[in-house]
């Protein structure tokens, strides 16, 4: 809260649900928590392709992208998102991941350039703090 209020403009976050997964409980809870922490949240809605997500991120001029996946398709979908993002935005927008993601895949995602991956049980404050740390004031 305190960090957010020191900023001149609020952090803009894109919460994205790629693929066919319909489990959006976490996405909605986080959208709420981020707004309470003073951030502006754009929610992609369900079933977005990686290209749609990268487009929204560029058009909405967001500071960070939080990708939520529960369906096990994370390796394929993150790879595409990171590749498109490099092409469209030169990798300037940091990406966070969240969902049901086994530890060995977190290593792979980090190697792809995903900054941090949150799994079930992560407190909301840890995620908002991570975002505030990654987006310069």
């Amino acid at each position: 809260m305190s960090m957010a209020t020191e900023r001149k403009t609020p952090i803009r976050v894109l919460i994205a649900k790629p693929g066919l997964d319909g489990h959006d409980r976490g996405a909605k809870v986080l959208a709420h928590a981020m707004r309470e922490a003073g951030m502006e949240v754009v929610y992609s809605g369900l079933r977005q392709t990686p290209a749609m997500i990268v487009n929204i991120a560029v058009e909405e001029d967001v500071d960070i992208i939080c990708v939520s996946i529960m369906s096990g398709a994370h390796l394929t979908l993150f790879a595409e998102i990171m590749e498109l993002l490099r092409a469209e935005a030169g990798e300037t927008i940091p990406v966070l991941g969240g969902g049901i993601i086994p530890a060995q895949d977190i290593v792979t995602l980090t190697e792809m350039g995903v900054r941090e991956v949150f799994t079930p049980g992560a407190p909301m404050a840890a995620i908002t703090a991570c975002i505030e740390g990654l987006v310069p004031a």
């Binding site: 693929g19 079933r47 096990g72 398709a73 390796l75 394929t76």
Partner: peptide, 22 residues
């Protein structure tokens, strides 16, 4: 799997990464 639940064939573009997963 999710493509089947949503009425997509396994070779549909939208099924990428999800075939036989959940």
């Amino acid at each position: 799997d999710l493509p089947t639940q949503l009425g997509f064939d396994s070779d549909d573009d939208r099924a990428k990464g999800e075939v036989g997963v959940v």
